[in-house]
Design a protein around this nucleic acid. Structure first.
Lengths: 151, 151
DNA sequence: TTGGTTGCAAAATGTTTGCATGACC
DNA sequence: GGTCATGCAAACATTTTGCAACCAA
């Protein structure tokens, strides 16, 4: 899944990225790595599926997934959002630079957008919202992706 | 609720705005008027509550709300979205110019933003998404509203 | 009159919680 | 060894569906 030429092994990713104050369990580590290697936000169900397809012998509970996503969110390394095309929540690791997605309204594919077109917009918005302290924003571009268009 | 100086009465709103091909029932009309007079997107539960507080003698079923919101969506006069701060879907009438909201992350107040800062951004985004046909976008500004800040 | 719409109840999702067992430090 | 995390099951919330009675055209 990783796009790096020299794939970093899981141990060193964990060593480098693990949040302090969070006990390591193999379930947590597995969930973290799935998020780490995904280039799009995942639903709890998608994470659950990936867990079980990676290690069918292991047992994972749905509640474990939810509880750990919440735990990660609390220590600030995971963001929970809801895309406007879906009814359920999706989760992703907070990256140094935040991300936006182009969402295909047909296949629901989520394509990360490299640039954030909003950095200098905040000021303009600020004028129309006196007193409102902007802490962030969420942007989705909706449309039909290349693959769906050619069907 | 209406901000107009000469409040338009319900009958003429319905006569002017009712979508063709949709049978009129008093439940549908009530739901439509609630959406019409709201300046923020509403959840199915909020619409249901408003229905029953407006006319406590009448009976409305939750399923009626959902079915009619879907019916309105199908004929293209209602938009269903999910705000990133909430888990459930919200609905609003499509207005001639679409709207964005500033969402307070504390009280979840939704403040409509007058301008859409994205019209000329689409082009810039288009470059980074070859083949992706942009049909729309969804933007939320997150932050703390004036009221919450002064608590 | 007749087909679409409603209310009710039940099912289907998605998410959260209680509790006893089990694993990490 | 004590504490916190897990699995399981049950609770909960939101949304969808089946069906008989009902209403608008």
């Amino acid at each position: 899944m990783s796009c790096k030429i020299h794939a970093e092994n899981s141990d060193s990713i964990i060593e480098r990225c693990w949040p302090s104050g969070v006990k390591k369990t193999h379930q947590r580590i597995d969930i973290f790595l799935i998020l780490y290697h995904s280039d799009e936000p995942l639903s709890a169900a998608e994470i659950f599926d990936k867990l079980n397809q990676k290690a069918p012998k292991e047992k994972y509970a749905f509640s474990t997934v939810y509880r750990n996503l919440l735990a990660f969110e609390k220590v600030g390394i995971v963001t929970k959002t809801t895309l406007s095309t879906e009814d359920n929540a999706v989760y992703e690791l907070k990256k140094s630079s935040h991300k936006h997605y182009a969402v295909c309204t047909k296949c629901h594919r989520k394509i990360p957008i490299k640039t954030c077109p909003l950095h200098d917009i905040s000021a303009a918005v600020k004028d129309s919202l006196p007193g409102f302290e902007i802490t962030g924003h969420q942007l989705e571009i909706l449309g039909i992706c290349n693959e769906c268009k050619n069907k």
